[in-house]
């Protein structure tokens, strides 16, 4: 497979990461997943992980995340990516499994697997794409759906008394001793994308050093299901999501603080 094309142009100032094949993604216009996939691709390049990385697909819009990296890949049932990744790492400590999981996959059906993988301190990387709804199935209520937010299964908005409250996964996981690094980032503007890139790199470096799970929650645009114009979706994150899901680091083991010095950006 050609992994070059436009990247070979001498005057290119912005390149597709070498690890990402030259193919279009299946994501909707304005979706944040493509950015997240690219940031991971940059990290895979920078850390030279082609021979070690195993991309574990999950269920939801991230289902074919393995198509966009030239690394070995597999596909976990709904919510089970941390279990699949755990076993890969336990059997092959030299490999580095990682997964991108959506909020339905990770915070609903897969809550047990992420909590226990984190508690065990598994040396894997989990990127948690939070867009506050079930994207692939048509925008239903997710565990992360905001109070009052319209979804296709809460057409009058999420009501506390009927649907309960959204879950702050990063804060919850940060109560555990196992994870090395937990942070929440957002994709709503270039400065925050750069921060997200840095967080993702740390979330790869920490488990590679055997320090425990690296976990990054990415607040991610879903304009189609939010019923907003793609151009307005970033501002929707600022106005609606960040008040509920504050950005920042929730867990950073002291050894990870040391690692951070090596991370650019």
């Amino acid at each position: 497979m050609s992994n070059r094309g436009i990247n070979d142009m001498d005057n290119a100032i912005f390149r597709r990461p070498d690890i990402m094949p030259d193919r279009a993604t299946h994501f909707c216009p304005g979706c944040g997943h493509g950015i997240t996939q690219r940031l991971i691709g940059e990290v895979l390049d920078d850390l030279r992980l082609r021979d070690k990385a195993i991309c574990v697909g999950s269920i939801g819009c991230t289902v074919t995340s393995y198509l966009y990296y030239d690394v070995d890949g597999t596909e976990a049932p709904h919510g089970r990516a941390p279990a699949v990744a755990t076993a890969i790492k336990r059997c092959h400590p030299d490999l580095h499994p990682f997964a991108i999981q959506g909020d339905g996959d990770l915070a609903s059906i897969g809550m047990a697997e992420i909590v226990h993988a984190a508690a065990r301190g598994e040396n894997i990387t989990i990127i948690f794409a939070n867009n506050a709804n079930y994207g692939m199935t048509g925008g239903q209520l997710a565990p992360t759906t905001l109070v009052g937010m319209y979804t296709s299964s809460t057409i009058a908005g999420r009501k506390e008394d009927r649907h309960g409250f959204p879950i702050r996964v990063s804060e919850m996981l940060a109560t555990l001793d196992g994870p090395a690094y937990i942070s929440r980032v957002s994709l709503h503007n270039p400065a925050n994308v750069r921060k997200a890139r840095k967080a993702i790199e740390i979330a790869f470096r920490a488990p590679l050093e055997g320090l425990g799970m690296g976990f990054v929650e990415v607040l991610s645009m879903c304009p189609i299901n939010w019923k907003v114009e793609p151009v307005n979706a970033p501002q929707w994150i600022v106005d609606n999501m960040i008040p509920q899901y504050p950005l920042g680091e929730f867990k950073c083991k002291p050894e990870v603080e040391e690692l951070k010095k090596a991370v650019r950006g």
Partner: peptide
């Protein structure tokens, strides 16, 4: 020892895939 039979079978999947 896993958190559930669900996790167990999916760990088997991950390990076997390697």
């Amino acid at each position: 020892q896993t958190e559930s039979e669900l996790a167990a079978i999916n760990m088997v999947y991950g390990a076997a895939a390697t």
